[in-house]
Design a protein around this nucleic acid. Structure first.
Lengths: 339, 339
DNA sequence: TTGAAAGCGCTACCAT
DNA sequence: ATGGTAGCGCTTTCAA
């Protein structure tokens, strides 16, 4: 491996001078600079980031932890984060927790030993608390994304889950639906709780009675089989519309409905939180509350870099991004029953 | 920051003993081991991977370079790579070249200075040659994914583009289509070339004349506007079917057809290479040649780790994964014209 | 079973 | 404008 000493020797200067040329620090004569540069190129010299980081205590690495890399919401978010990181000269260390607290903990350990400069953290849920605390204890700056964790005071970029849910359900109510099922994520996730709240608020607001038998709690990725929907359709008065609390659940719901021979929106209307990314454009079908995923990543990264490079003692910031109600063809006016 | 010296002092041993406890090397009395372990926990000690790597010359980092993180083919591939890496104790340094040779070069420089143990490299195209050579020059093991690069001798995991294309086109021909357009990626990408070859072979095989005016060369992500399709529909005998050379192009094609008021498959059939990941299940619509994306990543990572840990002088391996023809509702029998 | 010394490749600090 | 020295946190090597 070529080191600055190899360069120094061949260029007839000291290692320090080479270091200065690499970092553009201190005063170096134009002539020396050129000579050193030339030798560096001849020897195909590449600075060793490891050594550099060890002494500078700065890795220029930021860890991005997401919960599901196959979910377009998170990949779009990742692009936003990546673009912002690159612009500021940071590399991304990538991790995927799979909505699993144990995997998440493993990654936190990795992150800690890697000495990243900061972490962009999309937590699996409330129990991520301990993992976040672990970061805090070791003074690693982080920004929380998408899900708020009770008891953790940190910069956070959130979507407005309550309002988005309210709009989605209000839209269904306006179409005449009053038996609206909610297929939700687990209640240890703030977004699931808030979407539930929004769902309830919309009912309240429009004078609709709540029926808890219409609410199904799954995990945001737990739509393995559709037995969970069985109860829904065995009710005396089954739902005429379903609100899926995120895009992955919506995929499961739609598949399940298809298997049951139910047409969307003919037999039942469906809405969900989150859009489907670029490939969703192939068939813009579902009525959704679309979150600005790219901005989640971009803004989060900006906040994080400010923390890293600026005054770390600034008060925590809380950014809430609105979602956009996009009405498509999965919802329609409820037709009067011909019973 | 807590170091092994802090631990050593508090435990009343030398730093070396602490190091041995951490790494489970050498012979240590059970008593000492326990004492050291206890102090490490009390002080919340986390080994510094930087320092460790600097001396061991091993980072346990593998860089995964893909061309498009919003493409489900690559995200599914990434999951495969991640799972295999994790199993073997490697972390993933993530990079996204955006099908851009310059971005790719920037990332290669980063990779080089980071001293990763290896690179899983999905190249932008033939001109990635120089970037790959750069890795070779610095003796970084790598495995090439998805696209073969002329002049680069390395392990490579490929899909069978030629056969997949042949099957897709043969399927269309069997349905009675004989005016089949190809909307392809750029010709500096091996998969685009091979899909073109497969397209031609299918024509040949089934005694169909080739018409170059039916072939449109875009980039795999360059479907900004649909003017490219104008010529296709101004032909005397416009196509009755379109073969999009990958999933992202298919999205563009479908959108464009919709804007032109053409029904798929009623007015025109569409097929493409690559499937659409989990969210595609919401509306399994397109007839595709689906590649085993997860396996691309998993196998590639396995090959890479073998290279890193095993005998680096083993001859290059070339794995070709078949694609699966999945017939869905975007293709139908060509109806006789009623002119 | 344990420890001391040297050094991985680089930069901060103090000299000149 | 340039160089020497020390040290970042760890492991390798040799010694006890």
């Amino acid at each position: 491996m070529i080191t600055i000493y190899d360069i120094a020797e061949k260029a007839g200067v000291s290692a320090m001078t080479v270091s200065r040329v690499i970092n553009n620090t201190g005063r170096i004569s134009e002539e020396t600079r050129k000579r050193v540069r030339k030798v560096m190129e001849e020897l195909h010299y590449i600075p060793n980031a490891l050594a550099r980081s060890l002494v500078s205590q700065k890795t220029n690495l930021i860890s991005l932890l997401i919960t599901d890399i196959t979910n377009p919401f998170y990949t779009t978010l990742a692009r936003g984060a990546e673009d912002a990181a690159k612009k500021a000269g940071y590399r991304l260390l990538f991790a995927n927790s799979d909505e699993d607290y144990v995997k998440e903990k493993d990654y936190v350990d990795m992150i800690l030993s890697t000495r990243v400069d900061g972490v962009l953290f999309a937590p699996a849920g409330d129990h991520s608390h301990d993992n976040l605390l672990q970061l805090q204890k070791h003074q690693i700056p982080f920004v929380v994304l998408d899900r708020e964790i009770p008891g953790i005071d940190a910069d956070v970029v959130l979507g407005d889950s309550k309002e988005g849910a309210r709009n989605l359900v209000a839209h269904l109510i306006a179409l005449g639906h009053h038996r609206i099922a909610l297929v939700n994520g687990k209640q240890d996730v703030s977004t699931a709780r808030l979407r539930y709240t929004g769902y309830k608020e919309a009912h309240l607001l429009h004078g609709l009675a709540l029926d808890e038998s219409l609410v199904v709690h799954l995990g945001f990725r737990d739509f393995q089989d559709d037995s969970a929907l069985n109860e829904l359709f065995q009710l005396n008065e089954p739902p005429t519309a379903i609100f899926a609390a995120n895009n992955m659940l919506a995929v499961g719901v739609i598949q399940s409905l298809r298997q049951r021979g139910l047409q969307v929106p003919g037999d039942i209307s469906v809405v969900c939180f989150d859009d489907f990314g670029p490939t969703g454009a192939i068939n813009p079908f579902l009525t959704v509350a679309a979150q600005p995923a790219y901005q989640f990543g971009q803004l989060g990264m900006q906040l994080l870099i400010e923390r890293i490079e600026g005054d770390a003692s600034v008060e925590s910031r809380r950014i809430m991004l609105p979602s956009e109600l996009i009405i498509r063809s999965s919802t329609q006016q409820l037709l009067p029953l011909t019973t």
